[in-house]
């Protein structure tokens, strides 16, 4: 058997195992129950303003082919990703720098603590005035939403590395470089990923709100637009799309986390 055939067999086995996994079916049953309860509630006269799940299901193809639907995914995804990515880079850099240097921390921490409680959307008016385009405004807001949770978690991650690991590393003759790369970085990684997954959730919240307030395209804009056009099905499809997008982003995050921290597989 050649390598690709074995690879295929392995992948097929994994797929079969995933399909047999009861957790998958329990999850599917939960989702089905949710829609069923909704459908029944609608049928017996509750939830008058809402469309029924069947109406939504019937409307989905039409919504999906409508001009701008997929464009909305791309637009929102881009804003989330770029804002999040910029935030991650800066937050990790600052978090590590302040985690390592007392001076930097006592100089930089207070101002960040003052800025941190300001909700990203409170920056909206100023951001609109400051940034030349709505696109930049929205990315700036997602950046703000993602920055603080990542920053705080990286800092905490470095602070909370067990002193014994650092002592052991010093006894074992580590150079400052290896101490950093082989002890501090992996030691802070779990906290970093906690920060990243909180941040990705917040970026979706922020981007949707910002799009409703000032966007063109985007899932938030799509949902708001459906409201303006009095399309109930459109509103619900927009909301569910946001839910799926958020779930997919968290899924990607935890997938990367598992790859980056193989020692935590069992956790």
């Amino acid at each position: 058997m050649n390598a690709s055939a074995t690879g295929f067999a392995l992948r097929r086995d994994r797929l079969l195992r995933a399909i047999r996994n009861p957790v998958l079916w329990q999850g599917a049953a939960g989702v089905a129950t949710f829609f069923l309860v909704w459908q029944i509630a609608k049928a017996i006269g509750f939830l008058a303003v809402l469309p029924s799940p069947l109406d939504v299901a019937r409307g989905v193809p039409q919504q999906m082919v409508q001009e701008g639907y997929w464009l909305s995914w791309v637009a929102s995804g881009r804003r989330v990703f770029l804002g999040f990515f910029a935030a991650a880079v800066l937050a990790v850099t600052l978090g590590i720098a302040m985690g390592m240097s007392r001076k930097l921390r006592s100089g930089g921490f207070p101002i960040l603590e003052i800025l941190r409680p300001i909700p990203p959307l409170a920056w909206l008016p100023l951001a609109i005035l400051f940034w030349p385009s709505p696109e930049m405004t929205m990315m700036f807001l997602t950046f703000l939403g993602a920055f603080f949770p990542i920053f705080i978690n990286v800092l905490a991650g470095i602070d909370n590395i067990d002193a014994r690991y650092i002592q052991a590393a010093r006894s074992l003759g580590s150079s400052p470089r290896t101490l950093f790369w082989r002890v501090l970085v992996p030691g802070a990684l779990p906290a970093l990923f906690t920060g990243l997954s909180i941040a990705i959730g917040i970026t979706w919240e922020v981007v949707i709100a910002a799009e409703m307030a000032s966007g063109q395209h985007g899932l938030g804009y799509l949902t708001w637009n459906a409201y303006m056009g009095q399309s109930l099905v459109g509103i619900v499809v927009g909301m569910l799309s946001i839910g799926v997008a958020g779930m997919a982003s968290s899924g990607v995050m935890s997938w990367i986390g598992k790859r980056a921290m193989p020692w935590r597989r069992g956790h």
């Binding site: 067990d162 690991y165 010093r170 006894s171 074992l172 002890v183 992996p186 020692w263």
Partner: peptide, 20 residues
């Protein structure tokens, strides 16, 4: 004067690096 590989410590609780 400081830590070094001429003295090795086995700690009270494990201090193996969990990530290695």
């Amino acid at each position: 004067t400081g830590p070094g590989p001429d003295r090795m410590v086995v700690f009270q609780e494990t201090a193996l690096f969990p990530w290695m």
